[in-house]
Every structure is written in C-alpha cells, then in structure tokens.
Design a protein around this nucleic acid. Structure first.
Lengths: 150, 150
DNA sequence: CTCGGTGCAAAGCTTTTGCATCCGC
DNA sequence: GCGGATGCAAAAGCTTTGCACCGAG
C-alpha cells in the first residue's frame, strides 16, 4: 500500500505533473519536481512541516511558501490528497495509482488505518439524487480505539 | 431542524450539563451556563469567534479563553458537536435531541445541507469487526456543488 | 478561605503574504 | 528581458497559555 514507486511509475507521475503545468501555463521549476519526487519516494501520511524539514535535511534549498504552493498544485492535479485529520493540521498522501479509501484514526496512538467500502459510493449516489447536487469529493473518518495497540 | 428549543428542553439541557459538571467535580460558573444558553437559543453551525462576538454584543463579559474552554466541556458532555469543515476552523452545532446526521458542503457558496443514511452505521459495524477497533465517532462530509444555488 | 475559573494579553502554530531576487521561457 | 516563482521574514488567523484576580464551594 505504501510500497515505493518504481522508476517507471515515477516517470509517469512526473509526466502527469508536467502535462498539468503545461495546461495551466505554469513553469516547470526544479523545486516543484523536487517536492513531487520527495513525496513519491517516501510513503505514508505527512504534514507540511516534516516534508519541509526532510528536504532541508537533504540540503535542498526550499521555502515553506513553495512547499505550500506546490502542494496546492499537486492536490489540484490529483497527484496528492489533502486530509484534515485534526484541528489545525493538514496531512497529505500520495494519490496516484491508489484506489479510493477512507481512514480510521486511533484516538489513543494516532495510528491511521486505511479501509475501503463500496457502500460509501452508494451513499454518494443517494445524496446526489436526493439533494440535486454534484459531489466532487468526500471525506470519511472513523475515530476509534485500536485495541491490539501494540 | 434548527427550531428553537422550548423552555422545558432548555431546562433539561442545563440539568444534563449540571450533572456533567458535578460528576467531573467542576464548578458551575455563570459563564459556562451563559455560553450553553447562547448556543441553544440560536441554531445552526457557528464558530468560536461569532459566538464570542454575539455574547460581547449582548454586553456579556466573557473571554475567548472561557468560550474555548467551555466548548471543550460541552463537546465532552455530548451537548455540542465539533466539526472540522475547512482548514483552520472548527464549527460547532447543538447535539442534544438531534438525530445522527452528516453534512454536504457546497464548495461554491459554503451552504451546509444535513442528511442521514443508515448505511454509515453498517460501514461502522464492518470497520469494527474487520479491524478489531472500537469506533467512538465518525465524520462524513460530501463536498459538492449545489446546482439550484439560488 | 481555597483553589478552580476567569479575563486579558501574550505566545504558539500553521498558513499566507509582501517584496526583492531569480530564472524558466 | 519579461513576468512568474522563489526564499525569506513578517503578518495573519485560530487557539492555547501565563498570570493576577475573582468567586463557587
């Protein structure tokens, strides 16, 4: 699930981002691609600060502003997903080649479990029909205690 | 749904809060009950700042710190629900006597629609069984465009 | 009388913004 | 070379904390 991407996949992902930037007439700066690569060469959920620190530790010259800006672009281009797990903290995760899933968050240890359930799509369809809206995305979190917490 | 509470209901709610405070050996201060009453005499979703401003406008002497502190207690005692609709902003709503519901948020006009669907309980049950966890709460939001937006 | 709760202001944290500089195109 | 993008630092916005005072028990 958090398996590292292959070189081929990384190329594909970079191509998608390149296409997105060209469509939007945005510049293909080295920072943008460095951030994309940093995200895709390590898995899991991460916040802006740790991504920023990671890149700083590799002596990469980036600013927080650029990290925030680039994350917005990556979310826009569907390469990264943004989550609002807690108050005042956005967490992100890779979105390419990942099937739709939702999250269980342990309220004791903050561990995150991913799960899938087709019924969420049924609920979405019901909502669209019943309220005449067009659903763009959803977020579903279960806050739980994971008993086998060790 | 956002109908005002009756006096009887308000009494009942205050009694619940009183019981909660006594159980936890907390003091029954006038500020805490004033905040509770303010919340229950007006409906809908609200943020901390507007609640604070409302009370200030009524010449009630409260501080933001007390509002935050009291909201924590009210959430703890299940009289108020906290939502994380957007980044960096908690919204709250009354929880007493309201049946479980989730939310559709219009990404154009920020309008909030409430809906119920029993399938969310089925998903919850599945999650508990499949992952051996004990779900305490959940949050489900659909981000959508409400076409009949006028 | 005690000490938990309050108001106020300062501090904290994440995120955004302003501005001079840099560099993709 | 132009104008978008960047780095840096300052500012903004929500929330928490520190501290002296107040008042519930």
């Amino acid at each position: 699930m958090d398996v590292n991407v292959t070189l081929d996949q990384l190329n594909e992902i970079q191509a998608i981002f390149t296409r997105y930037l060209e469509e939007k007439k945005l510049r293909k700066t080295p920072e943008r691609f460095a951030i994309l690569e940093e995200i895709y060469t390590k898995g899991g959920h991460f916040d802006v600060e740790s991504l920023y620190i990671n890149m700083k530790n590799k002596n990469y010259r980036v600013s927080r502003a650029t990290v925030y800006n680039t994350l917005d672009l990556l979310v826009e281009s569907d390469l990264v997903t943004r989550h609002q797990f807690g108050r005042n903290l956005s967490l992100f995760e890779r979105a390419f080649n990942r099937k739709q899933h939702d999250h269980i968050i342990c309220t004791d240890c903050d561990k995150i479990i991913e799960f899938c359930d087709p019924r969420i799509q049924e609920i979405k369809a019901m909502v669209e029909e019943m309220y005449g809206v067009e659903v763009e995305s959803h977020s579903l979190y279960f806050y739980a205690k994971c008993k086998e917490d060790k």
